[in-house]
Amino acid sequence: MIAKSRIHESCRLYGINTIGRNCTILENVTLGYPSGRILDEIAAAGATPETYSYVGVRLGDDAVIRPGSTLYCDVVIGNALRTGHNALIRENTLIGDRVLVGTNVVIDGNCRIGNRVSIQSNVYIPTNTTIEDNVFLGPCSVLTNDKYPIRIPYDLKGPVLRKGASVGANATILPGVEIGEGAMVAAGALVTKDVPAWKLAIGAPAKIVELPEALRSLNRI
């Protein structure tokens, strides 16, 4: 279902998508791309992605999706989404209202992202990550979810970023780490342990220090 929105003729739509009012979807955007599970179903049914019926994207009002971006199936997004170019949002992801997903961002599925979140260019967000309201992620910051990559079994667990947290450019946050409410992670930091609310993580590996009084306010997003 598409309600009074502008969709470029080069866009590819898979599955059953619901698109809100006043959306602008630009060149070469893909909506509802099938996940691995859906592709298996399609193969078993002897069908094609173009003809098989499954749940695609549910997109709120006033979105702007820029060229080259791909949103997989089972993605639910609130109002006023903005993407840069070539953003990728994988399946089973829930995103709130007024969220920015910058150029070349990868959100790798099974993620929960709140309202008024700003995700700058080239950020990587792995499977099973939770990001609450008013969080800022600086350019090229990397979140991780595999504590022992490939070597031994590990239940993938992404970080948890609490309300109003800020992560600086090129910072790396290790699996399962919690960044507390209002906390800040300095640019280039390597965060290996939880950061308490309203504290600052700085350095590699990061040390926890007091947050300057001037920075003790929620992000203005």
Results as ranks from 00 to 15, higher is better:
33 Y>Q: 04
133 D>V: 07
158 G>I: 03
126 P>A: 12
132 E>R: 13
185 V>I: 15
7 I>Q: 11
169 A>R: 10
111 C>I: 08
35 S>W: 02
23 C>L: 11
76 V>H: 06
175 P>Q: 07
107 I>P: 01
14 Y>T: 00
86 N>A: 13
1 M>V: 09
153 P>L: 08
92 N>A: 02
124 Y>G: 13
124 Y>Q: 09
193 K>Y: 10
65 I>A: 09
56 G>H: 02
156 L>D: 12
102 G>M: 12
199 K>W: 00
83 T>M: 07
112 R>S: 13
26 L>T: 07
69 S>Y: 07
97 D>H: 10
129 T>R: 10
137 L>A: 04
6 R>F: 13
86 N>F: 13
135 V>C: 06
56 G>V: 04
15 G>Y: 00
82 R>G: 13
36 G>K: 07
12 R>P: 01
70 T>R: 03
109 G>T: 09
220 R>T: 15
41 E>R: 13
173 I>F: 08
13 L>M: 10
82 R>Y: 10
90 R>Y: 08
1 M>P: 15
172 T>A: 08
174 L>R: 06
95 I>R: 08
96 G>T: 05
92 N>T: 02
183 A>Y: 03
51 T>A: 12
117 V>R: 00
152 I>P: 00
43 A>H: 09
129 T>A: 10
76 V>F: 09
94 L>Y: 15
171 A>L: 05
148 Y>E: 10
